[in-house]
């Protein structure tokens, strides 16, 4: 069977006996995870690369902790998320967004609330949204990134952030409100 046809869970299982197969995991997730880190606010390319290395090493070390009843994608995102948080803590820096390529996602995904859409339509691009996302609390930013940029389902967000599904809905609702307020503030 070609490795391309194997599921993540199957690769994880086989990697335990054949570590070379773990390269497939890296190939599948490196780019996505790097983009996620940048969206969370890791700006320097070297930092993103260092983070990715740490994440894949941790993933490899903890392969036996993976439970196949969970989504592997959510699991590795959780590791990335936790590593990114530690990175910010260690460096004591405020995360800054790097979402130039996401303008369309912003407009398409956040604008499911009419007033947000109206405000966004006033902008020629998503620049205000980027700035607003950088200004709001990180807990709101990360959930908006996961929901609207990474296009994650509520259950996956719950697994990545390790919070109850009910809290995901509440947090997204609150985050949108905060973002809307920030957008209004920036528009003035």
């Amino acid at each position: 069977m070609l490795t391309n046809e194997l599921t993540d869970a199957e690769i994880v299982e086989q990697s335990l006996n054949n570590k070379e197969l773990f390269a497939v995991i890296i190939e599948r997730y490196a780019e996505r995870l790097a983009r996620y880190a940048r969206r969370l606010g890791v700006r320097r390319t070297e930092d993103v690369e260092d983070l990715l290395q740490e994440v894949f090493l941790k993933t490899y070390q903890n392969l036996n902790a993976f439970d196949s009843t969970f989504s592997f994608s959510a699991w590795i995102y959780r590791i990335m998320h936790n590593e990114t948080i530690s990175f910010f803590r260690k460096r004591s820096i405020r995360p800054e967004g790097n979402m130039e390529e996401d303008s369309e996602s912003i407009l398409a995904l956040i604008s499911d609330e009419e007033d947000v859409l109206e405000q966004l339509e006033k902008q020629s691009d998503g620049e205000h949204v980027h700035r607003a996302l950088d200004q709001i609390d990180f807990k709101y930013k990360e959930i908006l990134v996961l929901r609207f940029f990474e296009q994650r389902e509520y259950a996956e967000i719950s697994d990545i952030l390790e919070i109850p599904i009910g809290s995901v809905a509440t947090l997204i609702h609150r985050a949108k409100k905060v973002l809307r307020k920030e957008l209004g503030y920036l528009a003035k």
């Binding site: 570590k19 773990f22 390269a23 490196a30 290395q53 090493l57 490899y60 070390q61 036996n64």
Partner: peptide, 19 residues
Amino acid sequence: LVTKTFSRIETEHISPRPK
């Protein structure tokens, strides 16, 4: 990235923690 990661796995003798 694959090369660097595997190189560290080798040099730091990293292996999956037992179940």
